[in-house]
Design a binder for these strands. Sequence first.
RNA 1: GCUCCCAUCGUCUAGCCCGGUCAGGACGCCAGGUUUUCAUCCUGGUAACAGGGGUUCGAAUCCCCUUGGGAGUACCA
Length: 507
Amino acid sequence: MKHNNIRLRFAPSPTGPLHIGGVRTALYNYLFARKHGGKLILRIEDTDQTRFVPGAEEYIIESLKWCGIEFDESVIAGGPHAPYRQSERKKLYQLYSNQLIASGHAYFAFDTPEELEQARKNAEAQKQTFIYNVDTRKQLRNSLVMPQAEVNGLIAAGEPYVVRFRIPENTQVEMDDLIRGRVVVQSETLDDKVLFKSDGMPTYHLANIVDDHLMEISHVIRGEEWLPSLPLHVLLYEAFGWIKPQFAHLPLLLKPDGNGKLSKRDGDRLGFPVFPLRWKDPKTGEVSSGYREAGYYPEAFVNMLALLGWNPGTEQELFSMDGLIQAFSLDRVGKSGSKFDPEKTKWFNHQYLINRSNDELATEFRPILQAKGIVADQQYVQQVVGLVKERVQFVNELWEQSVFFFEAPTTYDEQVVKKRWKENTPAQMMELSNILNAISPFSASNIDAAIKSWIEEQAYGMGAIMNALRLLLVGAAKGPHLGEIMALIGKEETQRRIQKGIEKLTN
RNA sequence: GCUCCCAUCGUCUAGCCCGGUCAGGACGCCAGGUUUUCAUCCUGGUAACAGGGGUUCGAAUCCCCUUGGGAGUACCA
């Protein structure tokens, strides 16, 4: 049996900022839902009160919004299955927990955390792992072994208890994963997981299955770290007699160097963000950088993330969100983990940046100019970015590449001075100044032609002249074509820089 | 330890299901070219089927083993 409607969900826990692996999971859910004309739901799984972090939920919502991932039903948008925050659905889980107890699929357990800890230690001492299962149940304090009256008495007395799932004996649990195919496990290897905690809240397992069922989720796309609990989830669906969604477990995002899951620390260590947005830990005050603040375009970020673990099977690498929706398919998602590559991420940003129009880029560059106290009109800035955009990966690198369009150089690169400023250079520059003065209109092509013929007449070296001139105008051996620079800053400014430079460098 | 998952250039990956191309592309790196500089750009190069057994005329592709890696193993998600 299958669900008729396509309904996906992304279900994060508000225990901190969402990292890029989580964003990718949300993205794949979004792509799949849109591709198949389905709905996407955002559900907040806040059943652990001890790990709740203020601001995390808002952070998650803002991050996904920045990425262009939209939800049809959520804590903000509401929807037919509201509320979408599990802490507000508390009563529901109690009901379903009771149902499982009534049907014999679950039982009460009174073991204290200390007792269980002790049991684990004992097992460990014998080089074994303690699991709460058919073998150990009998020695523990639960409703499977205690007389009914005693159980009732303990509950009536307010003794804390949890509800555990009773894993069936001697069965093969068969699961189908859209990415991994069929997976089979023996039920004996599973343990009787806690479904309902003593604090009155469900655990992830119960809440997740109940909500996925109630919200009519057809496909569960989540990280591979959930694969080990898939058998439990399947068993839960069967115990309830509910239709299962289809599952797809995504490969993990790995750290760029060495092995292991990408973590917050890797970002700090290797100098790249692991979070979409900047995050300030409300407790420690610790700040983690974000892609947005680092100057990445959300389109580039999303494009990069989409290609990490999925590929279209063609050689196309640049995709708009709509393009991704068109091309996306779960059977082109790989099985093995992907190491995250910060370098390629920058390349993606560069691609999006050079494809921006000069007008857009000028607008994006404007706040940076303002901060530097530069007043320039849009037209001028447009021309500047047009000349330098190929050389940068981020908008915030534009200033460094174009300062000289806005300010005359105040210092001159010593290396270049040494190499290009010869004894006869000042005289040549004076001559050149006169040549430039006669040009009208002062356009790049006119300038180029005039300089070229003058150099030929005088039999000066092109390299010697142009590099010295560049030094005067830019202050360093960098920048776009000189003719373009002079045309843009204008004749007067060009003359000023030449005069000033000669003075400074001859003294 | 136990359970499960995974395995192609340094990295992301195509090819694998349905055996038969010098194993393709991109990032990075290196070299050359263009350029008045730097960058861009163009051209070229570098570099991989983890190992071992099978099956087959033929294996990256199918099967088994080994090795390696990862995840899980909480009254966390």
